[in-house]
Simulated scan of single mutants.
Amino acid sequence: MSLREKLTAAVKESMLARNAERTSTLRMIQAKLKDTDIAARPKGVDQIPDEEILAMLRSMIKSRRDSVALYLQGGREELAAKEEHEIAVISEFLPQTLEGAALEAAIQDAIAATGATSAKEMGKVIGALKAKHGAALDMSVASAAVKAALAG
């Protein structure tokens, strides 16, 4: 089942359960997906592939995390809680990301495979990680960990 089909099924399920908050967030995801599909049309693509949908979802989560920080700074806990709920719903459609020891092992494998020895060769290591682990990487976390591994 494609990511697009999972999203449609989740909307139907949420509507049947009469979960207004979840349905609202899922519809927001669908609207963003439709906008992204429309933006890709000049490139000759009717529907973006799952990899680009995952990137879109990560982007949505990142913007919500930024909003949460701003809302908390401004003392708007109720709006921060709403954004946190949206992050939780969006995260359901992302694959499990590599974390901790698994991420460190993947980075060490990529460093060994590329023969990188300094931070100047960070791009090679990131490229190897993307090729092998793709959707399972949170690139902001992975790049910071690669930088630390190459610096140390």
Rank of each mutant, 00 (worst) to 15 (best):
K62P: 05
E92Q: 13
G127K: 12
A102N: 02
A116E: 01
V125G: 11
G115S: 03
Q30V: 13
I107K: 07
I107S: 05
A113L: 01
L26K: 09
A20I: 11
L98F: 03
S140K: 13
A142L: 04
E86H: 13
M139K: 08
M15P: 04
G123P: 13
R76D: 14
E92N: 09
A119K: 11
A20S: 13
A40Y: 06
D35Y: 05
R22Q: 12
A145M: 09
S63H: 08
I48V: 12
R22P: 03
A142G: 08
A105I: 07
M15W: 02
R27C: 14
L7R: 05
K120N: 12
A144T: 07
E84H: 05
P42Q: 00
I126T: 12
E21H: 14
L129V: 14
I107C: 05
T114D: 03
A112L: 02
V141T: 15
L98C: 11
Q47R: 03
A9D: 10
E86L: 02
S67C: 00
A31W: 09
I107A: 05
V68K: 01
Q30K: 15
L33N: 05
H85D: 10
L3K: 05
F93G: 10
Y71N: 14
I111M: 09
M60D: 01
T36C: 11
G134E: 14
A128F: 09
V125D: 11
A144Y: 01
K32N: 14
V89R: 07
L70V: 11
I87R: 10
A148N: 10
G100C: 03
A131D: 15
R18K: 14
S14W: 00
L16T: 09
L26Y: 06
E104F: 00
A31M: 13
T8F: 03
A128L: 09
I38L: 10
L72S: 09
R4H: 08
F93I: 09
D46E: 09
G127A: 15
K82V: 07
V146N: 06
G100K: 00
M60L: 11
A102P: 03
A136M: 13
I38H: 06
K147Q: 13
A69Q: 08
A9H: 08
A39S: 03
R65A: 02
R65M: 04
G44I: 00
D37K: 07
Q73K: 15
A9P: 08
P95H: 01
A113K: 09
P49K: 00
T117I: 04
A39H: 03
A106K: 02
L79I: 08
S118H: 02
V146Y: 04
E92P: 04
E21Y: 12
L72G: 03
A105E: 06
L16N: 14
E83I: 01
Y71G: 02
L26M: 08
S67A: 08
V146C: 07
A116Q: 04
A116K: 03
D37C: 10
G75S: 12
K32F: 10
K6M: 12
